[in-house]
Design a protein around this nucleic acid. Structure first.
Length: 97
DNA sequence: CCCGTGACTTTAT
DNA sequence: AATAAAGCCACGG
């Protein structure tokens, strides 16, 4: 497998500060790729080792699966979930509404 | 080598 | 606003 790809994704996700979230596309863009699917693919396999709940869809909503579990993490970490899906494109950094 | 699949994104109709 | 199609990366069959 391309450990570089995996390593890049995991690194970016692990660097997301608490209370902030990044979209898959933004995470991919952080390491010079554009594959949100690649990121999601990595997450499905290696997400267990990274704060996957800090990675959300471009719409700002948690992943299609795990949304319920993600809310527990948000509640525990205090991550606000008021992303309306507007700021992610202009702000390529970890964002929070 | 080609096709399908997956925690996705974006543009166009 | 909602739906459709294309694009993207990696893996398995």
């Amino acid at each position: 497998m391309n450990e570089d790809f995996v390593e890049a994704v995991l690194s970016v996700v692990e660097e997301i500060p608490p209370g902030k979230v990044m979209s898959y596309g933004q995470v991919a863009a952080q390491f010079g790729s554009r594959s949100a699917r690649g990121v999601g693919w990595v997450m499905s396999r290696y997400g267990s080792d990274v704060p996957w709940w800090r990675v959300v869809q471009a719409s700002g909503k948690p992943p299609s699966c795990h949304e319920n579990s993600a809310r527990e993490h948000y509640d525990a970490e205090g991550t606000p979930l008021r992303l309306t899906g507007a700021a992610y494109r202009l702000d390529r950094s970890a964002f929070v509404a």
